[in-house]
Design a binder for these strands. Structure first.
Length: 277
DNA sequence: CATTTCACCTGGTGGC
DNA sequence: TGCCACCAGGTGAAAT
């Protein structure tokens, strides 16, 4: 489901609704897949802590938690949620019907409930105490903050396709399949161009296109391609702005040439053979 | 090391 | 209706 704009939208929505609230009880499902930290550890550690903020880092949702001063948990901590392809982080009432594939439920002091639902189980839940471990940091650069020179340096000497490079989370954190295709279209670049063969001018066009696309997508609440909804159950609207993604065979909105679909880095890739060089 | 391929999962869709 | 192939917003391990 989620790339940077969707994760940003969800993190903001969850933050608004849980900030200051205290986790009083937890429930974790029996599947082991979604848990980077064991369910038992998460259950023990989360209870009694309060949500300070909820923020996006790359495609991760980082819930910053207070210490639990009534118990033995004297250090602050983080609960890190990665949504994978189909994960959702919901804030509900306890009475709301529990959907299939619900893997975690946190009951809050206010009576609200935070739920993690993920049919395909590509998502991950992780707990980090901040006594020894550092706070979570994405390995890659933040696409909305990186500047011209640093952006260019990311691709120096990289022989892979520019599309593959954009998807590599250790280079840039947060870009996924939709926004890679959409930014390459807006920059007029073919997805299979070798990253190290792009000129400084082309790379700057790409950086600006990426910023533009990500910012407008955040403004529209992300892209709802299937059933994605934010923490308040609201769909995003950036899918209406897609110019190439999942428009195979349809006319390019600029030149009417049919949009092509190819496979790059194992992912379906859409581009206009006329507008992108 | 850098790069590519594939397995990990469930569910929806479209063809026959 | 059923069966099957193929597709899906991600990523990390294994192979090259």
């Amino acid at each position: 489901m989620p790339e940077l704009p969707e994760v940003e939208t969800i993190a903001r929505g969850v933050c608004e609704r849980v900030r200051g609230d205290v986790i009083v009880e937890t429930w974790f499902g029996s599947h082991k897949e979604p848990f980077k930290t064991s369910a038992r550890t998460q259950a023990e550690e989360l209870e009694g802590r309060a949500f300070e903020t909820v923020e996006r880092v790359g495609k991760h949702i980082v819930c910053r938690l207070s210490a639990n001063l009534d118990g033995p948990k004297k250090e602050r901590a983080e609960w890190i949620v990665h949504l994978g392809m189909t994960g959702r982080l919901l804030v509900t009432t306890p009475e709301a019907p529990v959907e299939m594939h619900t893997h975690a439920r946190l009951t809050l002091k206010s009576g609200k409930e935070v739920r993690f639902v993920d049919p395909r189980r590509f998502g991950r839940l992780e707990f980090r105490g901040l006594d020894k471990a550092k706070g979570f940091e994405a390995p890659g650069a933040e696409p909305l903050a990186i500047e011209t020179e640093a952006f260019r340096a990311l691709f120096h000497g990289r022989k892979l396709a520019i599309k593959a490079a954009l998807l590599n989370q250790t280079l840039l954190a947060g870009v996924g399949n939709i926004y890679a295709d959409e930014s390459l279209f807006r920059a007029g670049l073919r997805p299979r161009r070798r990253a190290d063969r792009l000129t400084a001018l082309e790379l700057e066009r790409l950086r600006l296109a990426l910023v533009e696309v990500l910012r407008s997508a955040i403004r529209l609440g992300g892209s709802s391609v299937s059933d994605y909804v934010d923490a308040n159950g609201v769909r995003g609207f950036f899918q209406l702005e897609h110019r190439v993604y999942q428009r195979t065979g349809e006319p390019c909105l600029v030149c009417r040439t049919p949009i092509k679909r190819i496979v790059v880095a194992g992912r379906s890739t859409h581009y206009c053979p006329q507008c992108q060089r």
